[in-house]
Amino acid sequence: MDNGNAGTASKTAKLRVFRGDASGGKLEPYEVETYPGMVVLDAIHDIQAKQEPTMAVRWNCKAGRCGSCSAEINGKPRLMCMTRMSHYAEGEPITVTPMRAFPIIRDLVTDVSHNFEMAKKIPPFTPRPRDADGTWRMKQEDIDRIQEFRKCIECFLCQDVCHVIRDHRKDTFAGPRFLIQLATLDMHPLDTLDRRELVKDEFGIGYCNITRCCTEVCPEGIRITDNGIIPLKERVADQYFDPIRWIASKVSGEEKKPKAKLRVLPPDPRPTDVPAGGKDRR
C-alpha cells in the first residue's frame, strides 16, 4: 500500500463539469479537496453536497458493478466511480461531460432509453428440453466464452463511443452491447433459435467496421469486437456470404434451427416533458 498514510494533507483538484440540459449548457469550473483513493464520482458528490445541490448525476453502487455512472472524462467514455483523480496530472482541470451519443436530460444524466428499447427487440433465449435427469449438462469449456459477455454491466459506454451510433446515428444498428448479447444467444449451447438473419438485417452488424472503440472503453475488459462481434460476423457470413458453406449446408442437410422473428413490444412509459403545474421543470 504505497499510499499508506501519505496524501492526508489536503490538496485541491480542479474540475470542469457540464451543467445544462437540452436547451443548452456550459462547462462550469469547480474546485474540490482531494483525499486518498478519491474517484471522479466522489468529486461530483462533493460538489453536489457542498456547492451545487441540484447537480444531476446517475449512480448506484460506486464499485464498478452496476454501470450507472457513465460519463466522458477528458473526452473518454469512463465510469466515474472507477476513475481515480490521481490518474490525471495535478493542477490540470479534469473535464467531465455527459455521454454525447445520447440525448441529454440534465447535467451528467442522459436518456439511455434507446438501449432498453433495443433490448426488447431481441428474441429471447429459447432452450432445448432438459436432459432426462432434469438437468442441462454443459461443461465449463462450453460456456467460458459466453460468460465473458455476461460480465456486461450495461454501462452503455460502448454504445456511446461507437461511431455508428455517435456520429452516424444509425437507428437500425443494435450497437456493441446488443451485438454481444446476440453473440451470447447464438453461442449458447442450449439455445434453439437462428437469429442470424436478424443480426444481418435488423441489428445491422454490417455497419460495424470493427474499429474497436467499444473494446477500448469497456470497463469490464470484455473483448467485445474480437470475441463477440467478429465471431458473429463470421457466423453471419457462414449463412449469407459464403457460397461454399451455403452449398455444403444444403447438400449435407444439416439440422436447421428455426428462424427467430424480431420482437415488437410497446415502448415503456417515459416522463413527458410537458410541465404539470406546481414547480415542475421550468
Binding site: 466522458e72 441529454i104 432509453s113 451510433i165
Partner: peptide, 20 residues
C-alpha cells in the same frame, strides 16, 4: 418499431474532442 430516441448533441467537427 424503429428506435425513437435520437441523439441530440451536435456533431463534432473532424478531430473535435475533449481528449487531451
Amino acid at each position: 418499431n424503429r428506435t425513437v430516441h435520437l441523439p441530440v448533441a451536435p456533431l463534432e467537427p473532424l478531430g473535435g474532442t475533449l481528449r487531451k
